[in-house]
Amino acid sequence: MFVSVPPSDLHQHLGGLLLTEKGADVVFDVGGQTFAAHRCVLAARSPVFSAELFGTMMESDPAGVVHVQDMEAQVFKALLYFVYTDSLPKTEKADEEDDVMSQHLLVAADRYNLERVKLICQEKLCGFIDVGTVATILTLAEQHHCHGLKKACFNFLSSSANLRTVMATEGFKHLSRSCPAITEELIAMLVNDS
């Protein structure tokens, strides 16, 4: 072979733009922290950003700052990192913090219509399903239309022992209030199992 083509490094160049803020033309205020970004990059990656930054939904104050409500700064920072690099920031280890971050990031991805992030978060959350987390994860899956994640939760709950244990948790009580249709599906599964 006479010519060797290296892998694409576009993500490194765009990530560098985010890091250096060179040419940034929009600032986001999220939980008191500010993030400079590039309207064109955001609009190209998310139809919601496109509408917010270029369409009729423009959400900036006269100073050009976009205020993002109901989101933690670290979640928005991870979302921006993905927009520019098509990957999520590396985490030290898979633990409870990663579980919670994946939950928040899934909600943010759904809000900005970033389907790939949403799928990555669903895949991660499948690995965190246990008796203590399944009700919360299932609620999230139902509210944000995550069919694969919902199936993974149902698979975990297909064990009568798991289902009975989960039904005694506070998380299940919250699930019952916020997603009554899911509770009915689970009860039907329990009845059919016995």
Score class of each variant (00 low, 15 high):
93 K>V: 12
96 E>M: 12
103 Q>F: 03
94 A>E: 13
91 T>G: 11
105 L>M: 08
100 V>N: 02
83 V>F: 05
97 E>D: 10
101 M>A: 10
79 L>W: 04
92 E>W: 14
89 P>M: 11
92 E>D: 15
80 L>H: 08
94 A>L: 14
109 A>T: 04
100 V>H: 04
106 L>G: 02
86 D>F: 11
101 M>H: 08
84 Y>N: 07
104 H>S: 07
92 E>T: 15
94 A>Y: 12
98 D>P: 08
93 K>F: 07
88 L>R: 03
102 S>D: 02
110 D>Y: 05
102 S>K: 02
91 T>D: 09
98 D>A: 15
97 E>R: 12
88 L>G: 10
78 A>D: 01
89 P>R: 05
82 F>N: 00
86 D>I: 09
100 V>I: 07
90 K>S: 14
110 D>V: 04
95 D>G: 14
82 F>V: 05
89 P>W: 09
103 Q>I: 03
100 V>S: 03
96 E>Y: 13
93 K>G: 06
105 L>R: 00
83 V>A: 07
101 M>V: 04
83 V>C: 09
91 T>P: 05
92 E>L: 15
98 D>W: 10
93 K>R: 14
95 D>N: 15
96 E>T: 13
93 K>D: 04
89 P>S: 09
93 K>I: 09
108 A>P: 00
91 T>V: 15
80 L>N: 08
81 Y>I: 03
78 A>H: 02
86 D>N: 14
98 D>H: 15
95 D>S: 10
93 K>T: 12
100 V>G: 00
98 D>L: 12
105 L>K: 01
93 K>W: 05
99 D>R: 15
97 E>F: 03
99 D>S: 11
83 V>D: 01
102 S>N: 07
88 L>E: 04
79 L>Q: 05
95 D>V: 06
109 A>H: 02
107 V>E: 00
87 S>I: 11
95 D>L: 05
85 T>G: 09
96 E>S: 14
97 E>I: 06
91 T>R: 13
103 Q>P: 07
83 V>G: 03
78 A>T: 04
86 D>M: 11
102 S>L: 04
110 D>C: 03
98 D>I: 04
88 L>Y: 07
105 L>E: 03
110 D>A: 06
83 V>M: 08
81 Y>F: 14
79 L>C: 10
93 K>Q: 13
83 V>S: 04
78 A>M: 06
100 V>M: 05
